[in-house]
């Protein structure tokens, strides 16, 4: 049963990723992207319930990544009504890659060890998921920014010149995602700290927080914008992916 749901999600997300890229060239196939993404999302929703019931997905790493992918696709649906709707063409392939790695490596992934902090453990888990999500979203906006900027700098307009939102809109969206992520991770850090004070048992979120703090520092006091911030976000997002898939927690 679980396998069937996982297959449905995989097929749906795979189709959505392909159509979302094709949609850059043929905008009228947008409805097909939506349909495939809905199919995958439906399959994954069923799978999350099934898996959560069977294995308490909260405490498994692969379940956590799946939850992140589920939220990414939810963001894609929300973005359909905004001026940043073309982010789906980047968001869905990223989501599919995360989903595919997660499914292939599920058995090999190290366990997720939550600290014994009662309610705090659940709160920190939710905040870390949201924090990573913000990072992935910022990385997607960074990719879009760099692609569009590349065409403008080369002074040869092609696909992205026509399809992607204005550079300033992308830069602003990237900044907002990072600011939100920094706030979320600071909250997670405070909860962890309170747990440590209460139980003397830490749960490591400092890598993520430090990355966010670094980016916040260069963006605001350092006035970094545009390509430098986008490039840094891309590099940092790789570290985040490594963290998600196996960095010690």
């Amino acid at each position: 049963m679980g396998l069937w749901m996982m297959a449905l999600a995989s097929v749906g997300y795979g189709g959505a990723a392909l159509f979302s890229v094709a949609q850059l060239y043929r905008p009228h196939i947008e409805r097909w992207t939506f349909a495939w993404a809905s199919l995958g999302w439906f399959g994954e929703t069923l799978w999350l319930f099934h898996h959560g019931h069977a294995a308490r997905f909260l405490v498994t790493r692969d379940g956590t990544v799946s939850m992140m992918v589920w939220l990414l696709v939810a963001l894609f649906f929300l973005a359909q009504r905004s001026s940043l709707r073309t982010c789906g063409s980047f968001l869905l392939p990223v989501g599919f890659v995360l989903w595919a790695i997660d499914r292939v490596m599920a058995a090999a992934l190290p366990p997720l060890m939550l600290f014994n902090g009662g309610w705090r453990a659940h709160v920190v888990w939710a905040l870390v998921v949201a924090g990573v999500m913000s990072f992935v979203l910022a990385a997607v906006f960074a990719i879009m920014y760099l692609e569009k900027e590349r065409e403008l700098k080369q002074r040869r307009v092609r696909l992205f010149y026509y399809r992607l939102p204005a550079l300033e809109a992308l830069d602003r969206a990237m900044g907002r995602a990072l600011t939100a992520g920094f706030g979320i991770m600071t909250g997670a850090g405070l909860v962890v700290l309170s747990g440590f004070l209460a139980h003397g048992e830490p749960w490591r979120v400092e890598l993520l927080w430090a990355l966010y703090a670094l980016i916040a520092a260069v963006r605001y006091p350092g006035h970094w914008r545009g390509p430098r911030l986008a490039s840094l976000t891309m590099v940092a997002s790789l570290a985040v992916v490594a963290y998600v898939f196996g960095a010690p927690t």
Binding site: A166, E168, A169
Partner: peptide, 9 residues
């Protein structure tokens, strides 16, 4: 058009 691709509006 070019200015709008950078500033949006």
């Amino acid at each position: 058009e070019l200015a709008n691709t950078v500033f949006g509006t």
